[in-house]
């Protein structure tokens, strides 16, 4: 059940964006990928989802290379949630969530119902996506991924456009997925969210893995100073930490 990158390198537009990265991700927990802008977080997530071809090394799922899977089998195993995707047609919310069943080629009614129930969306079934609020939209997009019942959920900044209450709400849903045994990997910008809610953190810096481990270790103050180039202190209790920056 492990999703692992081994000596993974990714080149985009002639530039090496992920370099020789090795990491093994376990299911049943939330893994956060953090790093400054341009560190290669989104590229790493795409490569882990099998959507970006590695220029070196590879990604494996349960020990076999991701490239050995058919696109359909990969779609069944790994759900990918892009960052604030632009939805081309003003479909009903329920039709959008049902797209998550495409890799299975079935109607998947129980899975869709379960996803709608998990994200408290049952009352909005027929609402066109253009008339959803930002928070509802984020939940609908996550429900689309959950409807596919993937073993792994890979989400690129799912909290970026949300206010604090909706951020916490969505994190609670992701935690529930992890508690149910799914692997959850999220790219995060907010270090406090990673510190308080992730079980495991990968810190990326210039395409390389700068640190990996439990949040308190990976996001230690001296590492933040080195990777982000800022001086900052953690305040508060574990699980309720806040980051204070200086100058």
């Amino acid at each position: 059940m492990t999703l692992a990158a081994e000596n993974l390198s990714v080149t985009r537009g002639g530039r090496v964006v992920v370099e020789n990265l090795t990491a093994a991700l376990a299911p049943g927990r939330i893994t956060a990928i953090v790093g400054p802008n341009g560190a290669g977080k989104s590229s790493l997530l795409l490569a882990l989802a099998g959507l970006l071809e590695p220029s070196g090394g590879g990604v494996s799922l349960d020990g076999s290379p991701l490239t050995a899977l058919t696109p359909r089998a990969r779609g069944q195993a790994i759900g990918y949630l892009p960052q604030s995707p632009d939805i081309a047609w003003d479909v009903s919310m329920e039709s959008l969530v049902a797209l998550g069943r495409l890799p299975w080629r079935d109607r998947g009614t129980p899975a869709i119902e379960a996803a709608l129930a998990a994200l408290d969306l049952e009352a909005l079934r027929t609402r066109p996506v253009s008339r959803l609020s930002g928070g509802e939209r984020a939940r609908v997009l996550l429900a689309r991924v959950l409807a596919g019942e993937p073993r792994w959920i890979l989400a690129d900044e799912p909290l970026a456009a949300l206010d604090l209450a909706h951020q916490l709400g969505l994190i609670a849903h992701l935690k529930a997925c992890a508690a149910a045994g799914q692997g959850v990997v999220v790219v995060l910008h907010d270090l406090a969210l990673a510190m308080n809610h992730a079980d495991h953190v990968l810190v990326l810096h210039d395409g390389r893995l700068a640190a990996e481990g439990p949040p308190a270790h990976a996001l230690a103050e001296e590492r933040i100073a080195r990777v982000w180039g800022i001086s900052a202190n953690w305040l508060g209790e574990p699980g309720r930490r806040g980051l204070v920056t200086h100058g």
């Binding site: 795409l46 959507l51 696109p71 990969r74 779609g75 069944q76 892009p82």
Partner: peptide, 8 residues
């Protein structure tokens, strides 16, 4: 990207 993740 999402389409490809769905097996397209």
């Amino acid at each position: 990207a999402a389409a490809r993740s769905l097996g397209v």
